[in-house]
Design a protein around this nucleic acid. Sequence first.
DNA 1: GACCTGCTGCGGACTG
Length: 746
Amino acid sequence: MPRSAFDQLAEPVRRWIWQQKWPSLRDVQEKAIPAVLAGGDIVISARTAAGKTEAAFLPLLSRIASNGRSADGFAVLYVSPLKALINDQHRRLESLCEACDILLHKWHGDVSEDAKARARKRPSGLVLITPESLEALLVRRGREAPRLFSRLDAFVIDELHAFIGTERGMQLQSILNRIEVATGRERIDRIGLSATLGDMHLAAEALRPGAGGSVSIIEGVDEGNGLKLQIRGYAIERPASADDETQDGGDERRDPFGASSVPDRLASDLFRFLRGRSNLLFAGSRVNVEIYTDRLSEMCRANSFPNEFFAHHGNLAKAMREEVEHRLRDDPRPTTAVATMTLELGIDIGDVETVAQIGPGFSVASLRQRLGRSGRRPGKPAKLRIFVPEPVAGPGDHPVDRLHLGLVQSIAMVECLLENWCEPPADAGLHLSTLIHQILAAILQTGGLKPASAWQLLCGRGPFRNVDKGLFADLLRRMAHPDVRLIEQSPQGLLMIGETGEQIAESHELYAVFMTEKEYRIIHEARVLGTYPLSSPVAPNETLIFAGRRWRILDVDDHARVIAVQPTRAGKPPYFAGDGGAIHDKIVSKMQDILAGGNVFTYLDTEAVGLLNAARSAFRDLGLHERSVIPHGEGVLVFPWAGTRKLRTLLAALLASELKGSAAWHVIEIQEVDLEGVAHHLKRIADAPPPDGITLAARLAQPQLAKFDRFLSPELMNLVTAKERLDIPELPSVASATLRNLSRVV
DNA sequence: GACCTGCTGCGGACTG
């Protein structure tokens, strides 16, 4: 008989599995156990709730158990992006660790200082920690790092996909590297737990930057039960502006289907499909979450049903979000959470009947994560319904409205999902903001280091691979500049913390690398409902929809940053600012194929089919089947059929040619020019080598998107914009593709 | 035309 995975586990681990009365090990666990026991870097990927945690920890605890228990260092460091996930995992691992006589420590901002001090005093066993708490530990107690971590057997990174390509991911990679260097270990095993992405080699590279090829990849077989899928279209008449009920009007006309209301037919369909079961409704933005929750709750009340629709987004108080999660997971009453991406990550909410979504969303990766929330019970397929409202254009409306790009993008994204493709994470970034942070952290951890060893630590061996020695020196000079004073250099040449650096080091600002906005707290009686951005002014007596309910503002205390509210009958949607995202090239190019082609998509409802046919006719009427630039009014419309970064780059290049225009959703509109004029400029851009990106970036607004961007010089900021927000190398080929067939016309 | 995440340290006084 072959030796099964189970037999390879340590005796106390096997005994614990017996006690759980599991019928068998899951597929991903069978595969992961021998791999983890053998050692090395591993990515374990499977859908949410497929047993990834146990797949890593059953063999890891077997490894530690055979090493014997000691108190001279932690054995495993588990890093999670969410405190809530640490609390979940602590509950799941408690009895297993107890059975193995291995200590288990929770370590994040809500854990008492006392518990952390005890763990530090006699370091042993498993630590479940956030990147920020780990950063705090290194920065505040850098000299203890060798004692705490020299005996580490492995790092476990949960939700690895959530870290890839982000500032926080760069910080985490840097921290892991700093620990390896501080303990004098060449490499400590890294085990990443990830959702299944299109190309798992990118996850491997994220786990071990520069050596992704040496990482083993374990993919759990999807035990799913198939997919039931529908896209529903809603042709929505534009409200005549004379009927506009709101006093402050302007926004309403610009965005009739966004922030103001839910079209009646859409509302009644949502109510019909969702009520009476447990579902997730992804509404796209926090404002939409509020509007849809309010509307659906009102429909419950109007029909004398108890409410079963609840809001869930990042500005709602944790306690309120947890009530919704708890009701979904443990309460038999039907519950629909109307949510933003807060319910995409691995928080345990059990299985839902249907995943519904308003509009196309922003990425296929996100769509896939959402879908994994449904169809987990045996014999029950995952169900996805996408509801797409489309304005029906009348004469005189903008031609782009006739293309129904929301519906076409929804189809493109579903096609990508069915092809098993999803967006690879971006990796071209310089991440200078986070590098500034890591330079400060490394100085604090070590007490001071030479510029050459700082470069080697962070860029040579560490994750900031795109920063060469010259750029690193520029950055250090900027950090030491008299206007900035983040660092200074000692007579011996050591980098030391400067005056501004001191101020940051003394505050909470030091630990997290992502940007946050200052906010008011919204309070009803003694209860905190959530937070509201300071940048959005509100006044007493104003009404507000928040947490899916209607309130009147009693008082605004700007000093204490508190808004007091009481329930009321009327309310208007809240205001949250957003950043705007970037859609991938492949999706936009597929949109062009869908509009130009004649494929039938069986998952469309009748109304969506009608809208798609109308869009395809408009595509031909406008001549877009033959060329990508068409006349419009006094100017032209340019359709590069490329993703957001390329679109933005082409616009910047055209503006640099002294043209006037702007970019909207997938389209560039240029004013006061004819086809011939635009063709001339496109041809020049297509025939020239890629321009100097820094000069092009200097023409753009430079929003400080990352936390420490405010310390960068204009030159360094232009460099960041050129690398991270534009796509300079591809500009000539984008221009040339856009130009294709235009010569026949002019 | 967006969304999400996180967070010191210390010693001495007091209580049971």
